[in-house]
Simulated assay, not measured.
Amino acid sequence: MTVRNRRVIGFVLVVLVVVVAAGAYGWSEYDRSRQARTTATDVDLVPADVTVTGERIVFRSTAPGDLYGRVATVAADDPGGPREVAPVACDRVDTTGDRTVCLRTDRGVVTTFEAALLDANWQPTRSWPLPGIPSRTRLSPDGALVATTSFVTGHSYMSTGFSTETVIHEIGGRDYGNIEEFDLLVDGEKIAPVDRNMWGVTFVDDTIFYATAQSQALGHTWLVRGDLEARTLSVVRDGVECPSLSPNGSRIAFKKDVDDGSGVHWSIAVLDLASGEETVLGEQRNVDDQVEWLDDDTILYGLPRDHEPGVTDVWAMPAAGGTPEVLIPEAWSPAVLRQ
């Protein structure tokens, strides 16, 4: 056997060892994940014949186990208490009670993404494909409109060169399409940045909404006020991402980049729409979420747990500033149902 042949055989053996090792690791990770998803979830559940009513919070459960990813409900006055679990799984969820929008991922042979509308009994009434990874969704206060945001490329707003698609549908009626196609107005003048991205819709009513508009080329991330009938997006303020309108419509909570350097660190800020006064709250951790309002005085947001991949908690903090606290453990994407 020549030296060259011995080297070829040695190389093939090394490749085989690497392939076998990689396969064994892949199988062990798959098996670990499968066991984690089939093990009973260790959270308190309400009895099967009990329905949570009254003021309540609907969310995505991230407790490890067989109920991971399922939509769950807790009483607003006992958010850390027993949860009712629905028979559907979602990546993002919003609800008015009678109607729920669910963004989800189907990890089949080919991974696909979908938005589904569900009735009060969690039965699907309509669904449509999404072009990429689910990111944000909101229903209008009366449930007549639904907005969805998906990543077309990239995996988060931290990515450079990411692209989003944000679409608004009137349920059972008009399709307003991608709001990127609306006219973008700055001080009443139309501009047309070629790299614009839109996301984070929050509805005022069935005509007016707020959202994020960004142009990386121009170096701006704006809070915009959208008008569905006029098909316009009017810039309200710079430096605002993922707005969320308070129940009384007087304030908007949002993500704000507070990093003075070249990096990105999102804190939470609250804008008073009447006075224009902005207050940056005391949350020191990086918050990559569109916040929800528990009431006019308290905001909710999700944060991942350190060293527990896939597990998140919903935190609460006074909108005037204060100490954040865990409101719902092992939860994500909260939607508050008020009476």
Rank of each mutant, 00 (worst) to 15 (best):
E241M: 01
R174I: 13
I9V: 15
Y30A: 11
F162L: 12
T100G: 06
W122H: 05
P334H: 05
D98I: 10
P129T: 01
G321Y: 05
L67R: 09
E114G: 02
I268D: 03
G302E: 15
S246C: 00
N178I: 05
A335M: 14
R60Y: 01
V146A: 04
H155R: 12
T125K: 13
P334A: 03
V287H: 08
E278R: 14
E84F: 04
A76W: 01
A72I: 11
G322K: 13
V43E: 02
P64K: 04
W266N: 00
S234H: 14
P329T: 01
G177N: 07
N197V: 02
Y301N: 08
V240E: 12
R32N: 15
L228K: 02
G261N: 07
D296R: 06
A211P: 02
V287Q: 06
S156Q: 07
A72R: 02
S262P: 00
P243K: 04
P334Q: 02
D183Y: 08
G10E: 14
W266D: 00
K255E: 10
V43H: 12
A211Q: 09
R34K: 07
N248P: 00
A120P: 06
T2L: 13
T100S: 08
E29F: 06
D42W: 09
G143E: 11
T112Y: 06
V186I: 15
E277D: 09
R60D: 06
V167L: 09
T164M: 10
T38W: 05
I171E: 07
A319V: 11
V20I: 14
G322Y: 08
V258N: 04
S127T: 15
L223H: 14
P334W: 01
V74G: 11
G276P: 05
A120T: 08
P141I: 06
P243T: 07
T202V: 02
G81H: 09
D66Y: 01
T202M: 13
D44N: 11
V280A: 13
P129R: 12
D195N: 07
V14S: 12
S234L: 05
R104P: 00
T212D: 03
G226W: 10
N5H: 10
V46F: 04
V311K: 09
V291H: 00
Q35C: 14
V336Q: 15
G219L: 06
D91I: 09
I57F: 03
L67Y: 02
L185F: 14
G239P: 03
G200F: 01
T62A: 13
V270P: 05
V88G: 13
Q123T: 15
P79I: 15
L327P: 00
T323N: 10
R237A: 12
E325F: 06
L327W: 00
